[in-house]
């Protein structure tokens, strides 16, 4: 039988899915073991048990100075920035994308502008944002918006253009106004596309968030990582990295579930 026709059963598929994770964990444990054997006070690759006890301490023990658990404070601060940024960017993309995709009079001025604007490296304008908007929350959210909105707008307008022309003609023969077409034909069909595009841009959104937090913040997951970096606190950094990855994955998973539930007419997606 050819390999393209062979499929793993459900049990084997689960085992295969777990394999890379276990492999990475195993390699880490061996490396950590080897380094600790040479130098028990090595900080670069702390033992998994050390990380676990650090994680427990981070998650439960309040900070001595403020009396708050910094881990949850950081999580909340970062998530709020991320979600507000993504929400603003996707709302902007939905409106602008539909308008650019459906109205030639919007496409003419805005499509070239968005195409050029999307080439501006967001991190290069971060100093400008800090100077203009201050070091507070606004500049961090703005960086996320500037970072992902152009991609989302371009993707949305392309999705609108990709819709079969026949549907637009049909809607017109049923008497629909431009607004009615945008609202009833285009909007519901690009919403699942928007969720798909947002899922893809979550990675960059986290990148911009952590970059902004690393440079200027007083709380947040990125801020904490770059703070403890000075003390080579690998156990703290690793805990935070795993936590960020988990959060990002859960967001992605939630968006996929929403898309599946809300748009049953839409086909399967990864």
């Amino acid at each position: 039988m050819r390999w393209i026709n062979r499929r793993p059963g459900p049990v084997l598929a689960t085992v295969l899915a777990a394999l890379p994770f276990l492999a990475v964990l195993g390699i880490y444990m061996i490396g950590s073991e080897m380094r600790l054997a040479v130098n028990p006070s090595d900080k670069l690759l702390p033992a998994p048990t050390t990380i676990l006890s650090t994680a427990e301490r981070l998650l439960t023990e309040p900070d001595r100075r403020s009396g708050e658990i910094l881990f949850w404070l950081d999580t909340w601060a970062s998530l709020r920035r991320l979600l507000i940024g993504v929400l603003i960017a996707s709302s902007l993309a939905l409106v602008m994308g539909i308008l650019i995709g459906m109205l030639p009079y919007m496409r003419a001025p805005f499509a070239p502008f968005v195409a050029v604007f999307s080439m501006v490296p967001p991190l290069a304008v971060l100093p400008i944002l800090f100077i203009m908007l201050g070091l507070g929350e606004v500049s961090k959210v703005a960086l996320i918006v500037i970072g992902i909105a152009p991609f989302l707008i371009r993707d949305m307008s392309q999705r609108v253009i990709d819709l079969p022309r026949e549907q637009f003609i049909k809607a017109q023969t049923l008497g629909a106004s431009s607004m009615a077409i945008g609202l009833n034909v285009i909007l519901p069909q690009v919403l699942p596309r928007l969720i798909g595009a947002v899922r893809l841009s979550l990675g960059p959104a986290w990148l911009f968030l952590i970059a902004a937090e690393a440079i200027a913040a007083d709380q947040g997951l990125g801020y904490r990582i770059f703070l403890v970096r000075r003390y080579l606190a690998m156990d703290v950094i690793l805990t935070y990295v795993v936590w960020i990855t988990l959060l990002a994955y859960l967001l992605d998973f939630a968006l996929r579930q929403i898309s599946k539930r809300a748009f049953p007419w839409d086909g399967e997606s990864l």
């Binding site: 026949e166 549907q167 809607a171 008497g175 629909a176 106004s177 607004m179 009833n184 007419w265």
Partner: peptide, 28 residues
Amino acid sequence: FQRYSVFPHMTVIDNLVAAIAFDTNFWG
């Protein structure tokens, strides 16, 4: 048309209702 004549995001019955709804007002 040969293809793409109906709206894929509407149920069969709503596709028919659309013929009335789209024309009723500005919002369709």
